[in-house]
């Protein structure tokens, strides 16, 4: 069954027809040709499809497109204009926080979300004092970035990259 929806992706508006079964991830990758968010598991188990969905980091492999009519999506490719890089992307480059690059756009979007969540004072599993302020320690970054699997295992570099971007 088909449905017509509109999406705003990386600042551009689209009107498109999707199957009710189509996920936002497949809508982007297979309908709109935006392959910045990746499909690693298709079940919310790896984080490669992380984008900012209406401002919050989300896994769009688990989001039905039809249920997000009118949504605003920012992928890693939409974080900075062509030829420029977002501070998180620049930090990933400098820290060599990736190898194969497949999980990277999801890591980058997740990191942008993490920095925003920390700025809003959201606690995490490793926050010692739930009633206090949140400090961006390495343990906080690692815990918060744990929804993004990296099989090349660049974690040791991802954490400082997020710290570097967060310090700006």
């Amino acid at each position: 069954m088909d449905a017509e929806i509109s999406l705003r992706v990386d600042g551009e508006s689209h009107r498109l027809t999707v199957d009710t079964r189509t996920t936002l991830l497949d809508a982007l990758r297979e309908r709109l040709g935006n392959t910045s968010p990746k499909k690693g598991c298709d079940h919310g188990q790896c984080g490669a499809c992380t984008v900012l969905l209406d401002g919050q980091r989300s896994l769009i492999c688990l989001a039905l497109a039809v249920a997000h009519d009118g949504a605003e999506i920012t992928t890693a490719d939409g974080l900075a204009p062509a030829g420029e890089l977002h501070p998180v992307q620049q930090a990933f480059l400098e820290q060599d926080a990736f190898q194969c690059g497949y999980c990277t756009p999801g890591q980058v979007c997740s990191a942008v979300g993490v920095l925003d969540e920390v700025a809003r004072g959201w606690p995490s599993h490793v926050t010692e004092d739930l009633t206090g302020d949140v400090e961006l320690s390495d343990a906080e970054v690692s815990e918060r970035m744990s929804g993004n699997l990296c099989r090349c295992a660049a974690y040791e570099n991802i954490t400082p990259a997020v710290q570097q971007a967060g310090a700006r």
């Binding site: 919310g44 984080g47 992380t50 919050q56 980091r57 989300s58 896994l59 688990l62 997740s110 979300g113 993490v114 969540e117 606690p123 995490s124 599993h125 926050t127 918060r144 744990s146 929804g147 993004n148």
Partner: peptide, 10 residues
Amino acid sequence: LAGATGQLRN
């Protein structure tokens, strides 16, 4: 906070 991940909790 012990459940799932930041993205899923959102």
